[in-house]
Design a protein around this nucleic acid. Structure first.
Lengths: 225, 225
DNA sequence: TTTATTAATTAGGTTAATCTAATTATATAT
DNA sequence: ATATATAATTAGATTAACCTAATTAATAAA
């Protein structure tokens, strides 16, 4: 059997790959303890599975650096996350569940095995880019959609978002952002919006209220939620 | 814990209940051997599970009479079959699969656990009575809709019927039907019946005469007229 | 740097669901 | 009725995924 053959993964292996991906995305070290916490099981069990996933070339592992997904491990993890999020869209949009009720069902549905299922579901749902929680749905090739796609100027009063990108990259603008202590990843809450000139009163990273112009708000792209 | 408490069943237990139901429906004795054949496993494994299902009061078992579902065992079996058939409708009607491609996927989907899922899926699909193979979908209370129940093999020469369902939903059989251009709703006329092997000469949708075996005709159920 | 704490790992078990091989029971055929 | 074939059952292993308890390694504190 070839090393790059896509081997069928067990339900449990898939859950480990997903957990490893998420822990890594959070910028944490992927330790046996962290994985055990994520999967609500025992570090000793995790060690067993780490060995198995290493043999299958899905992860590498080093006591000090923790676990890292290989290219094929990452592809698998993204495939599962893709399916999870597509099913969440289905459950909310088509079956009428609330967004806070679908996680456990999607945890089961994500493991359904069929070569064409994700693509067909994706098409049926109209190729959504985000799940009901605002999390991006990886494409078939594993690419994540560009997430920042809501202008701050379009955000309603009382809503929040995280800065994903800026449309104006001129020096004066970026200097202004620096002065506001606003960078990629900053959380913004809209406290108020003034009708007469569309300027906003916002809080950056839960800091003090600040007034910003419509020119500013139309150049900030946010990750919703 | 009360005896009539609905206990969560494992994936495997659900498959046994379903197999027992189907074997019984076919009028056969539900023996360890028959169950093993249906599940493609070993009679010794079946004996173990028979004991377990007996303890859980889902079946009764007698060496001579075979296994019988108890009321709660039958309710469970019908619930799984209901989910299986609802998912088949979803896969064909909504995702665009062909009817001969959905069995294996529905085998997985039928085990998804959520109290409200079947009802929501049922409503979303418009409360269908039959799955894409023409098999009746049990209602929430376990009641089966009345359906086509005359076998093609029992039809007299010169009579006609419309295909209402097929009793064998295996991929090879469905592929054969596809090749014959025979689907649900197809009209069939019996042109002749050969005494020596019970094979028939039929016309599908007023098409050319074709010879089909008794094995084929005993697996086609017709709505008379 | 030695101690205390926490994390990683090993060793040995458990459970569910399977298996093979051997045995016992039932059914069939002469 | 006895031999033969087939089915049911028992006994004992195996595998995947988990566990607890003991040990070793690494990190943090005194």
């Amino acid at each position: 059997m070839y090393a790059d053959t896509i081997m069928k993964k067990t339900y449990s292996e898939e859950n480990y790959l997903k957990a490893i991906y998420h822990i890594d995305q959070n910028g944490l070290k992927v330790s046996p303890k962290a994985i055990a916490a994520a999967l609500d099981n025992n570090p000793a069990s995790v060690i067993d599975m780490i060995k198995k996933l290493q043999e299958k070339l899905l992860i590498s592992y080093d006591k000090v650096k923790g676990a890292k997904l290989t290219a094929s491990g990452q592809a698998s993890a993204l495939d599962i996350i893709r399916k999870h999020r597509l099913w969440e869209v289905f459950l909310v949009e088509k079956l009428g569940y609330d967004w806070d009720e679908v996680h456990d069902i999607a945890e089961q549905l994500e493991h359904i095995q069929d070569d064409r299922l994700a693509a067909k579901l994706d098409a049926f749902l109209g190729n959504p880019s985000f799940d009901p929680h605002g999390d991006p749905i990886p494409a078939e090739n594993g690419k994540m959609p560009v997430y920042a796609n809501i202008r701050l100027s379009d955000l309603e009063v009382g809503n929040k978002g995280k800065v994903g990108s800026v449309r104006d990259t001129s020096t004066p603008f970026l200097k202004y952002l620096k002065q506001l202590q606003l960078g990629l990843g900053s959380s913004i809450e809209v406290l108020d919006k003034l009708e007469f000139d569309q300027s906003m009163i916002i809080s950056i990273n839960s800091g003090p209220a600040q007034t910003v112009s419509s020119k500013m708000t139309s150049n900030i792209l946010l990750i919703p939620g």
